[in-house]
């Protein structure tokens, strides 16, 4: 009984506390660097598209709002022919970023994506691809992958020995 009265009093005192509300459009909220907002596609340090069209983000997506189709350039480097995110379905869970083996897809601190027309929520690759590395610097997937692409031959990756001559029987 007493505790009820006490809580009445304590709650009453909250009338005079500082407000927590942020008056949003006039006053901007602080977004942490790891805030999960708008999705972008980043580039590697050499300026190449990081996305290798492995489809893992699409598979991880619980609302299945990512669609892409793989294609290859003349050097054997795979990239998405199109990459589409239907943000009207996206729940910003960040699973795609977690699934991405190349740090290509990233969620960035930006949530101001509202549109009057739902159709405008469908982002294509040109809307997603940025010119930088995003949150993760210095990583270049093709430097650690075993395949050869233009500008990186077999044995030139990190932690790789030079190619073997199969006609050689020496130990």
């Amino acid at each position: 009984m007493l505790s009820l009265i006490k809580s009445l009093w304590l709650v009453f005192l909250h009338l005079f506390r500082k407000r927590f509300t942020i008056q949003y459009p006039e006053e901007k909220a602080y977004l942490a660097p790891r805030y999960r907002g708008r999705i972008i596609l980043s580039r590697d340090p050499d300026g190449g598209e990081r996305c290798v069209a492995c489809y893992l983000c699409a598979a991880a997506c619980p609302v299945e709002c990512i669609a892409l189709d793989a294609t290859e350039d003349e050097n054997g480097r795979r990239y998405p022919d199109f990459f589409r995110i239907n943000f009207s379905r996206c729940i910003y869970c960040g699973y795609c970023e977690e699934a991405c083996p190349t740090y290509a897809i990233q969620l960035v601190p930006d949530f101001e994506m509202a549109e009057y027309n739902r159709q405008n929520m469908v982002y294509e690759k040109e809307d997603l691809l940025i010119d930088g590395e995003g949150k993760y610097h210095g990583y270049n997937y093709y430097k650690v992958a075993g395949i050869a692409i233009g500008g990186k031959d077999k044995g030139e990756g990190e932690n790789e020995s030079s190619p073997i001559d199969p006609k050689d029987l020496m130990p």
Partner: peptide, 8 residues
């Protein structure tokens, strides 16, 4: 209610 909960 909002005022009592430190809101606006």
């Amino acid at each position: 209610l909002a005022l009592l909960q430190d809101r606006l």
